[in-house]
Simulated scan of single mutants.
Amino acid sequence: MVTAEAARNVVGIIGNVISFFLFASPCPTFYRIIKNKSVEEFQVYPYLFTVLNCIFWIIYGLPFVHPDSLLVVTINGVGLVMELIYLCIFFTYAPNKGRKKVVYWLCGEVVFIAVVSLVVLLVFHDHNRRILAFGIICDVFNIIMYGSPLIIMKKVITTKSVEYMPFYLSLANFLNGCVWTAYALIKLDIFILISNGLGALAATAQLILYGCYFRSTPRDEKVVDAKAPQIQLAVSDGPGRV
């Protein structure tokens, strides 16, 4: 008979795999940046934000905050490394203004994370309160990241076209949200449950919208919108999403 802990580990591993592919989804964009030796119109904010999100989830999953959350730490650790690689590439090909932006934001994030972590760890000495504090912080960031694709939904409705709503990314977000929701339900983790449950609902709305406007999308359009990949990046960088 399969125990709840074994089932949770299996689901968590599946969630790690899906989250990894979400983290890897910006690779074509960075290949383009390297090839063109320019960041063009791409924005660095999604990656900076995801770094912050990953670090807080790593702290959340550490034994002195939330025991038995190794799979949360592993995927966000991998995600953090990947996001830092993206930032290094961006830094390499960005103009001076863009480079300064990366440095200033990263320094600010380090200070913010250090201050918040020290305050929580020094003020709260038991697991329950630490889980509550870091869980709320992680949920806020996760919900914002899961909700970022909703920005493009207005454009889809207005143009009656899903040209700039990537189906597979929406599907991956849906699967990611569902898997981590199941993970949270097997051994109740309210904070993983809340953000990923809402994420699954947001992705469901995107898929429904895609189905509604897929037929009305012009097939002969060859419009290149530099902002479209930015929207995708804001969505795809999220999986520190557990």
Rank of each mutant, 00 (worst) to 15 (best):
A226H: 11
F49N: 12
K101P: 00
I194L: 14
D220C: 05
S69I: 00
E163R: 13
I18N: 04
P229C: 10
I55Q: 03
V110N: 00
V81R: 00
N16C: 15
L118E: 03
T159D: 14
S216A: 07
V17N: 08
T217A: 06
I143G: 09
T29L: 10
F30A: 11
C88K: 03
L188K: 02
Y86E: 08
L198Q: 05
G135E: 09
G177Y: 01
W180I: 01
A200T: 10
K100S: 08
T29N: 13
G77F: 06
P46K: 02
R130P: 02
C212D: 01
A184Q: 03
I137Q: 04
V2R: 00
I231V: 14
S117T: 15
F30K: 09
I194Q: 01
P229W: 06
S19W: 07
V103R: 09
S69M: 11
L175E: 04
Y183A: 09
Y146S: 08
Y183I: 06
I13M: 12
H66A: 12
F23D: 09
V123E: 01
V235D: 03
I34G: 00
R219I: 06
I144T: 10
I33A: 09
N96G: 13
I33D: 08
Y60C: 03
F20E: 04
N53F: 12
V115S: 03
F191W: 14
D220T: 14
I33F: 03
L209G: 12
G12R: 04
V73D: 04
A172D: 02
I186T: 10
F141L: 15
V235S: 15
L22S: 12
I55G: 03
